[in-house]
Nucleic acid binder design. Sequence first.
DNA 1: TGTATTATGTCAACAACACTGACGTATCAG
DNA 2: CTGATACGTCAGTGTTGTTGACATAATACA
Lengths: 162, 162
Amino acid sequence: MQRKLPQSNLYLREEELRRGIELLYFAYRDFTRDPDEILADSGFGRAHHRVLYFVKRNPGTTVSGLLSLLRITKQSLSRVLGQLVDDGYIEQKPGTEDRRQRLLYLTDKGEKFEADLFATQRQRVAQAYKMAGPEAVSGFWEVLLNIVDDSEREIVMRQLEK
Amino acid sequence: MQRKLPQSNLYLREEELRRGIELLYFAYRDFTRDPDEILADSGFGRAHHRVLYFVKRNPGTTVSGLLSLLRITKQSLSRVLGQLVDDGYIEQKPGTEDRRQRLLYLTDKGEKFEADLFATQRQRVAQAYKMAGPEAVSGFWEVLLNIVDDSEREIVMRQLEK
DNA sequence: TGTATTATGTCAACAACACTGACGTATCAG
DNA sequence: CTGATACGTCAGTGTTGTTGACATAATACA
């Protein structure tokens, strides 16, 4: 018998998939809202935030390091990075081993600004973690990691373990 | 004693928070990649996808319904919606009760296109669900829902239950 | 009936951020 | 010495968001 089971399963599955898709949209939209507001006051945008964030997390990283992490073009990165350097948020030091490289570090000003931006997301995510509980948080991480491209998962995991 | 515990907890907490923040960035980035490619071939962008998606999910919704769901300006929506109507993906019918309203529906062409776009994200999310397992999926939903703004949670939950 | 409000659309300007393509310089590696 | 690499730059383009102002039609209400 069971004529209707496959149909029913498919329907449930679709609902579950749409739920994930929608939550991802809404959560990401709100997740970026607080820092976006702070950034706008300083004449920066979301891209600046990402650069500050990943330089903070990977002090001494190079331009190509950022490029392969962010997966944007060097022209896009260059514009944003240049502004951050010009405005004194990021410092470039020539590589010791390979002098073509520019090692990137946050200045004190950059550290403070990043901390302000981080505080807003910290608050939001900490609250969500608290409401959902530790088991839910594990599941959250696991599903997200599996949504990442197969081809990117290695590099993402390396980043997470820093 | 436990002199070091609070410090240690804070450190762990920070790491956990950064993990969530980073995963959200990487997952969202890759999550939007497949549909973005298809859209580019048709001369559309991510905003068109969102409109198609939510009209599919809420057939007969109005412009203001979309506006309060997407939280963008009417000028932004109008441009994108206008293109989709002009190109025959979305159909507008005057409201029966309130004739100022334009009720929005996907045309057959729109249904097919949305299905193509959805298929890519369906595949990615289904795979992630499968790898992570049902408990992880619940946690994924729960954390994401709590990341959504308090002020938006009602409207998001109403959407999810459709 | 008349008036205020609502739903929607439109014109214009602007900014952020991504892209492509091409070219240039300094440095490294063999 | 030569080719590849790391990085920068100039120029153009497109999507998507914003603000502000104005217009039209339909509704709601006094």
